[in-house]
Design a protein around this nucleic acid. Structure first.
Length: 826
RNA sequence: GGGCAGAUGGCGGAAUGGCAGACGCGCUAGGCUUAGGACCUAGUUCCUGAUGAGGGAGUGCGGGUUCGACUCCCGCUCUGCCCACCA
């Protein structure tokens, strides 16, 4: 074996190159109009305190692609920042008495050293920190622009209210109807909240999917469901006692002849008004109770359908018939109009309810083929021909829908309609550590936006974090008391802060010009860098964050700040990191500290391992053993490249070398370049790219001993070692920088051009042809790459083992795939 | 209840119509060593055969398409994720 080398000292070498990169500002980039740009972004972290394995995985994937793109000649923007506002900072303040700002900034400082220790190629000069006024100022600016355009508005909405703590509770804090802190019974309460009018963009958010072909299909589907478009019609049912109609929404107007009753949500404004008869008090009480319950129980899976008969009736505009009006807990106020026409024959929920309360069931749809009905449950089929429906009888459902909707429009008691499940985005939070909503309330002038020149409205430093009722901001007179910019009178400042999802809805624009002081971002810089060419992050953000970011981008476009409609044309949804069967989390106590892994094995080994263990989009189950393997592999690469580098000087030029070994290594080298290029660049299968590099290393090690004997062999060894270093550089950058410089190359491997794969040299000059009989492999033979089908067939048939298998049976057909396979069919 | 994704050795995974199990972990044997949990070499799906050559089975289960199926189609089972009374 070759000369022994001292072991690879990852600690010293990793630190060395991290310093070099920092000193030379290697990863800083600028707009270069002549050069193709590539904007690679990973979802920025919340500074919770320590980097976790999910981060390591996410950022390792991104880093490989960023470095690869740089080596293949792109001008790569690869920034990072901090999603630094949010509840954990406030909880830490309450629990440990640390100011949220101190806690957050300390965490950021620590996590920054951790990320640098991983060797990620970030342009740190563009670091964005959302808890600093120079960032959240622009949240406020955008909010005001939206307010001017009617896209931000104030509305009363239902919240969970704890009467003892006098505070609003999140749904999970009010689980089971009890306050998580004091166990008091939670009440529903209507409070003023600020909303962003995302529903204005519902249709465009849906239509935009056409531009998102490079998103995972299941993510688009989740967004589609979230937007929840349905096409149907509104229909007005006249209510004589009310003197006005009740409007319902239906997607199945073709079943309206089967509507045997109307159902209102308990929250419906007319529910109480319609109660009549001697059971009045009881019924009112039932409605009140159900309203209270429904907010909390809505999450729970199975709630029994329950309802009360109001005693009043409505007129079905199609039949002229009087049908009873009920109030029931299974109708949602938030969707449609909060009232439905019940068609028990063809809707499972209405059917269940009608059965429970003995209401009429009338079949109005019959299947086109008569075999399947009725279902044994008693429920009828719901598609086919319309029957028992006056002049519409006999029409197929789809046609009846059109005809009936037109009839309703003509009679002015209904209209075609499209509804969405998507709700406007409530952004008000009763919290301290968030962007203050830049609004003042003046006794005389009402709602007054804070003038742009007064931005940012800063989060006041001095606040008390007691964990008691209400937001800390309410209790700071200096913050709350203000003068009205319009009339100069006294005004009260809004004390709610914004949902932190606002911050993350546009931060990717900010990276283009992170220090800009007059606008959220500079148009020219954003025009150059945007859109994000590849966005990588956990699928848990697939709905909210990604839909809000798409919404904001469209708003920013309408404000004239960008021409872009979609920020992320390509999204790579990274799989979870799990251990012992569940996602790594502090609460489950199954976390693994990356620092410990770095200490024991180095950043390169950790990066390599986490990328090798599973393809990026799949779940990755952590196991301790594998990282040893990565570490060993790094040691072998070190040894191998050092051996090639120090191969003995030129011997006799004509010395013979092993031709077969030479060809094997040369072929492997070019095959590997091709595979790795494809795996990183188009498939993102980083795990198979690594395994290909491992195979090359194995071949290189196997052939080295003999190849070293000739000048040509030594030259090839040198080439292969160089290519190996280049291919591996995106994965284990420290190791490869060191080897690169030890190979005597000037400049950083980071800037070295990606190796070129010679197709001709990658080709097999000989192919193994598999011979099957009736689809079963019976033998194989070697053939020249250019072998013809006729030759293949002849050779296959002549093989003794094939002859034996055939046993003289007549051959019916021979299927032949050039260079691959011969299948003989008898 | 609806939707989506997945199921391959002891383990992570590879192969997307053409040699199943690449690559790695683990394990076994041997070598090297004062020793080693370091390193090197060989082996490692199951059954059968004799320890060989060989033969057979095999990618959750049952069918189908095809010369040929882990891969495509139909029907199930299980697991994970998302949504969940959305009219």
């Amino acid at each position: 074996m070759s000369k022994d080398h001292s072991e690879y000292d990852f600690e010293r070498i990793e630190e060395k190159w991290q310093n070099v990169w920092a000193e030379r500002k290697t990863f800083e980039v600028h707009e270069e109009p002549g050069k193709s740009k590539f904007y690679l972004l990973e979802m920025y972290p919340y500074p919770s305190g320590r980097v976790h394995m999910g981060h390591v995985r996410n950022y390792s994937i991104g880093d490989v692609i960023a470095r690869f793109k740089t080596m293949t000649g792109w001008n790569v923007l690869h920034p990072i920042g901090w999603d630094a506002l949010g509840m954990p900072a406030e909880n830490a303040a309450i629990k440990h008495g640390i100011h949220p700002q101190t806690w957050t900034l300390d965490n950021i400082a620590h996590m920054k050293t951790q990320l640098k220790r991983m060797g990620f190629a970030y342009d740190w000069s563009r670091e964005v920190n959302t808890c600093l006024p120079d960032y959240y100022k622009w949240n406020q600016w955008i909010f005001l622009k939206m307010y001017e355009r009617g896209l931000a508005y104030r509305k009363k909405s239902w919240v969970n209210w704890c009467p003892d703590c006098r505070t609003v509770l999140a749904n999970e804090q009010a689980a089971g109807g009890e306050c998580w802190r004091c166990s008091a019974e939670v009440e529903p309460k209507k409070m003023d909240h600020w909303f962003l009018k995302i529903t204005n963009y519902a249709e465009e958010l849906l239509a935009g999917h056409a531009q998102l072909q490079k998103w995972p299909e299941h993510v688009l589907l989740m967004q589609r469901n979230w937007i929840g478009k349905s096409t149907g019609a509104y229909v007005d049912f006249e209510v004589p006692e009310l003197g006005r109609p009740i409007r319902v929404f239906t997607t199945r107007i073709d079943t309206i002849y089967g509507a045997t009753f109307l159902v209102l949500s308990p929250e419906h404004p007319d529910s109480h008004a319609l109660i009549a008869g001697d059971r009045e008090p009881e019924l009112h009480a039932w409605i009140t109770k159900t309203v209270a319950e429904s907010r909390l129980k809505r999450d729970l899976s199975e709630v029994d359908k329950e309802g009360v008969d109001t005693g009043k009736t409505a007129v079905n505009p199609f039949t002229g018939e009087n049908i009873p009006i009920w109030v029931a807990n299974y109708v949602l106020m938030e969707y449609g109009t909060g009232a439905i026409m019940a068609v028990p024959a063809h809707d499972a929920r209405d059917f269940e309810f009608a059965k429970k309360y003995g209401l009429a069931v009338r079949e109005v749809i019959t299947p086109e083929d008569e075999t399947a009905r009725p279902r044994n449950s008693g429920l009828f089929e719901d598609c086919g021909l319309v029957v028992n429906s006056g002049r519409f009888s006999g029409l197929p459902s789809a046609e009846a829908m059109d005809a009936m909707a037109e009839h309703a429009e003509a009679g002015r008691f209904g209209e075609k309609a499209v509804t969405y499940r998507l709700r406007d985005w409530g952004i008000s939070r009763q919290r301290y550590w968030g962007t203050p909503i830049p609004i003042l309330y003046c006794d005389k002038c009402g709602i007054v936006p804070v003038p742009y020149k007064d931005l940012p409205v800063q989060i006041p430093y001095n606040a008390e974090f007691t964990g008691e009722a209400g937001s800390p901001l309410e209790k700071i007179p200096d913050f709350v008391n203000a003068t009205c910019p319009t009339c100069g009178g006294r005004a009260r400042r809004e004390t709610d802060t914004m949902d932190t999802f606002v911050d993350s809805s546009w931060y990717f624009f900010r990276y283009a010009s992170p220090r800009e002081e007059t606008l959220p971002f500079v148009r020219g810089a954003a025009d150059y860098w945007m859109p994000v060419d590849l966005y990588i992050g956990g699928v848990e953000h697939a709905i909210l964050h990604l839909i809000y970011a798409r919404f904001f981008t469209k708003v920013l476009r309408d404000l004239g700040l960008t021409a872009l409609g979609e920020p992320f044309p390509h999204y790579l949804a990274q799989g979870m990191v799990t251990k012992d069967g569940s996602a790594m989390s502090k609460s489950k106590g199954n976390t693994v500290d990356p620092d410990e892994m770095i200490r024991n094995y180095g950043a390169d080994a950790l990066r390599l391992f986490i990328l090798f263990a599973a393809p990026p989009e799949k779940e990755f189950a952590w196991n301790e053993d594998g990282i040893e393997g990565s570490s060993r592999f790094i040691g072998r690469v070190w040894q191998t490249v050092e051996d090639c580098r120090e191969a003995p000087g030129p011997g006799p030029a004509a010395a013979a070398h092993d031709d077969a070994g030479f060809a094997r290594l040369q072929k492997k080298m070019h095959q590997t370049i091709r595979k790795v290029t494809e795996d990183i660049g188009t498939r993102f299968h980083l795990n198979t790219a690594i395994s290909a590099i491992m195979e090359l290393t194995n071949v290189l090690r196997r052939e080295a001993e003999t190849l070293r004997g000739s000048a040509a062999g030594r030259e090839l060894l040198g080439q292969a070692a160089e290519r190996l270093v280049l291919l591996l550089a995106p994965f284990t950058p420290h190791l490869c920088e060191e080897l690169w410089s030890r190979l005597g190359r000037t400049g950083l491997v980071y800037h070295a051009p990606w190796p070129f794969s010679d197709e001709a040299l990658a080709q097999e000059e000989k192919a193994t042809i598999v011979v099957e009989v009736n689809g079963k492999i019976r033998d194989r033979f070697e053939a020249e790459a250019g072998v013809t089908e006729a030759e293949m067939k002849a050779t296959a048939l002549a093989l003794p083992r094939i002859q034996a298998t055939l046993g003289g049976k007549p051959v019916r057909a021979i299927v032949c795939i050039k260079g691959k396979i011969v299948n003989i069919v008898t």
